[in-house]
Amino acid sequence: MTTALAATEIAAKLEAALPGSVVESNGNTVVVKDVQLFRAASYLKTTAGLDFNYLNYLTATDYQTHFELIYDLISIEHNHHIILKTRLTDREKATVASVVSLWRGADFQEREIYDLFGINFPEHPNLKRIFLWDGFQGYPLRKDFKH
C-alpha cells in the first residue's frame, strides 16, 4: 500500500529548508507559495529519505478566486506519496515555474494546463497549445469560459 506521508512533517522540513514557503498543510497535502514552488519541488525530489522521483500527474483547477495546481509526487523506491499544491491569484498573468527540468514527464501536462487554463510556465522548453489550435480564443477549462 502506498503510504501517504504526513503533510505536517513534510511542511516542517520544507519550512526549515525554505523559510516562509509553506502556506498550509493537512492530511497528505502541502500548499506552498507560488514563487517558492520550484525550490520546494526540487527539495522534495532531491532530499534523501524523501526521493520523490516520480511525478504521477499534474493538473489545475479553477476555483474562480484562484487557480490551484496539484502535483502528485511518488517515490517508487519508498512507495510513499505526497500532494504538493500551489495557488495563483492573478488570473490575467497566471504564471508559475516549470518543473520540466526536474521531471520531464511534466512536459505535455504543463502544455495541457497552458492550453486549457492559460497558465504560463516561462521555463518550459516548448510551451504552445497542445490540443487546440493557435488561433483559439479563451481557455476552456476556466469557469468563466463561454462557448
Binding site: F108, L116, R129, I130, F131, L132, W133, P140, L141, F145
Partner: peptide
C-alpha cells in the same frame, strides 16, 4: 502533434 480527437471530455 495532438488534438485531432480532442472532444473536451473534461469540460
Amino acid at each position: 502533434v495532438f488534438g485531432y480527437l480532442h472532444r473536451g471530455i473534461e469540460k
